[in-house]
Amino acid sequence: MAAPLELYCWKGDWGLPSVDIDCLTVLAYAKFAGAPLKVHKIANPWRSPTGTLPALKTREEGSLSQPSKIIIHLRKQKYNADYDLSAKEGADTLAFVSLLEEKLLPALIYTLWVDSKNYVDVTRCWYAENIPFPLNFLLPNRMHGQQLEKLRLVRGDPTLEPGEEIEKELYRDALECLTLLSQRLGSHKFFFGDSPSSLDAYVFGHLAPLLKIKLPSGKLQQHLNSLDNLRQFCTNILVLYFPSEGRDIPNRKMSVHTDGSDFDNEPHKRRNQILSALFAMGAMLGYAILTGIVTIKRTHPQEALVSAGHDDGGEDDED
């Protein structure tokens, strides 16, 4: 038997196997279909073969990054969770996945990446803490920009700004979508009978972050929590298919600063400050020596002392 396929995805937290919607979908599908994947849980998208996460390294088709393509590829490898579905159920899967993408996903993007309270306190905080230095300064902001751009294009409104009006519109659609899903699920364990299919993977991927991540402004969360069967559905999947994640929930206190400035949330703040101060000092000193503002002459120790005195003065001004 050939070596298992390699899957790269965002690492988990809050008791989730991964923090990203697409990664969760793929991971859940792989579990449902019993595909033996070698999973690399990383926090640096630049280490993935496609530069984005999730990514599946395949032998025939190179690396895939869209969840739908990854699922199709796994299906071709005979890891098919939809094998028992009738043609009509297959059609329903397609329809409900569209419903998720059109109605719920924009609101999820909004709540995780655009809502300023959630973004500053939780999303950016998590990514900045987990992405390795120095990318942690660059990537969270870039991802924020990409998500906002995506939301604008999907809504067809190039001037979309975070605000009450757009939030109300998005959440209205999303709440309706959650209610519809809850009605469709009813009292069943999974959407189609007793075994999970790709639709269950998509729904789980979209709902689990909402259920587990503690967000300061959580209108969507409240609504999801009021729908018992959907909440139960996610918990079930977590317990049955990702038993190792539930155990090691880090008892991390959520850092919810509302008073401090944005910079308070940056990790390794003190270390980075010292590093940048040292770097600036080194650069100034180097420039001073190169251009001859400071000259080091061993023969006249007094003169050198005078120059060094000037140099120190300059640094004090800069700081």
Partner: peptide
């Protein structure tokens, strides 16, 4: 309720694809 959920889902299928 289930039929209404399916109707909405299929409408999104048409819009989405």
């Amino acid at each position: 309720d289930v039929q209404r959920a399916e109707m909405k889902a299929y409408m999104e299928l048409v819009n989405n694809m």
